[in-house]
Each structure stands twice: as C-alpha cells, then as structure tokens.
C-alpha cells in the first residue's frame, strides 16, 4: 500500500458555511413557529404550508454547503 500524500485531504469538508446546517435542523423542530391554523395560504393552514416551506430552507442550506465544499479539478 502506498502512503497517500494529500496535504489538502483533511480540509475537504471544512467551510464556515457548515455552521448554517444546524438552522434547518432546529427550526422545523420548534412547534411554536408553525402550530397554528392562521394565516392560511390558498386555504391551507399555516401548520402545513409553513412546514412544507421549511423544505426550501433545508435545500438552500445543503446547496450552499455543497457548493462550498465540493471538489473540483479532478
């Protein structure tokens, strides 16, 4: 087995943007934010449309982290 010499190997996943990841984990787990009927959106109670909207929050965050930590030039 050859010993790999990759000085940048350890830093692949490091990015200040990683600190955004706790947000889409914590926010959807706080019922006071969404546990209500009003305001409705297209007749859909807040409870449902806001929790579906949290999907966008999650996607945005993971996309930012992906773009900051992906490997290029291979």
């Amino acid at each position: 087995m050859t010993t790999p010499d990759r000085s940048d190997g350890r830093s692949d996943d490091r990015s200040p943007l990683n600190w955004l990841l706790p947000l889409p984990i914590a926010i959807p787990l706080l019922p006071p934010l969404f546990n209500a009927v009003e305001p409705r959106l297209f007749g859909i109670p807040l409870f449902y449309w806001l929790q579906l909207a949290f999907i966008v929050l999650g996607v945005t965050t993971t996309t930012l982290v992906y773009r900051a930590t992906r490997r290029r030039n291979r």
Partner: peptide, 17 residues
C-alpha cells in the same frame, strides 16, 4: 401524522457531512 415532513427535512442537513 405530518411528522413525516419535519422528519425528512431535518435528516439531510443532519447527515450530510
């Protein structure tokens, strides 16, 4: 029953790294 939504939202940022 809607717990399935927050469940499948929080899982990806949680396991990504």
């Amino acid at each position: 029953g809607f717990y399935a939504v927050p469940y499948t939202v929080v899982v990806y940022p949680m396991v990504m790294l």
